[in-house]
Amino acid sequence: MSQGSRTAVHARTAASRTGQRGVVEDDATSRYVRESARPDPTGTSAGALTRRPVRLMLGLIVPLLVLGAWQSNAVIGVFSPVQLPPPAAVLAAGAELAARGELWLHIIISTQRVLIGFAIGSVLGLAVGALLGLSRLADALLTPVVGALRAVPSLAWVPLLILWMKIGEDSKVTLILIGAFFPVFTTVFVALRHVDRDLVEAGRAFGLRGMQLLTTVQLPAVVPAIFSGLRLALAQAWLFLVAAELIASSLGLGFLLIDSSNNGRTDRIFLAIILLAVIGKATDALLGLAEQWAVRRWT
């Protein structure tokens, strides 16, 4: 055991000796779940605002108001139809693209890019985060490098990616992957550093080491953190998708944006933005459901 960790262990036993004495019995167990992301703490107060149908209704109010204001612009004419086409025009643009079969192609290819980039980036983020979070050696060797890479604004990679991979799926997926990697990496790395040391020590005392300790104690302990990292990563993935498609593509919602801009089709620009909002929110909601389940299961 290194000098430093020995000091820490001692400081901790001293603290628990003095601090734990008066603890009521239930506090002792709740210590372990204290820091995890538990469901909304106000959930027990059973106010009307916490009920799901009520929340859904309330959440719709602002979008409906915006829609109303948007529609009224067509009558009042603050903005010209070129600047702000009425909702019906956007709907018609969508119907027209759907009829030609193009709309689904844009949606599917964009979603596919996001999902592939997000999947690979998250797995890499998890692996590298676990490695650097658990191994002092890897931490000392690699953390400065990873930190420097993270400091590079991700769009700075674009020229290099195009040079290396040409303008194809690979370069776009790689950019999305870079975007998804860092949130997962950072949350997993930090969370592993803060796993309850008493629990890890208990695992060690019962003969767990290496991979077994990782899978039995450390990874389950950081599951809530992994999920918050994944949700951040998914949002980043959509962000980078649009960046990648704006720069070089012939299909996808980002392409629809830049192509419509070049052709002065504001209705299609609005269509693309609304689709990005809806699909982004839908994928995040799905991940949120998985998170809820995981947090219940692992804390």
Binding site: T29, Y32, F206, P220, W298
Partner: peptide, 23 residues
């Protein structure tokens, strides 16, 4: 050896049975 600490130090995501099995 086997240790029991001042705090139970059980894995919160496991049942009591699985926690005992860890030993």
């Amino acid at each position: 050896c086997a240790v029991a600490f001042q705090e139970p130090r059980l894995l919160p995501w496991h049942t009591l049975r699985a926690n005992v099995a860890m030993g």
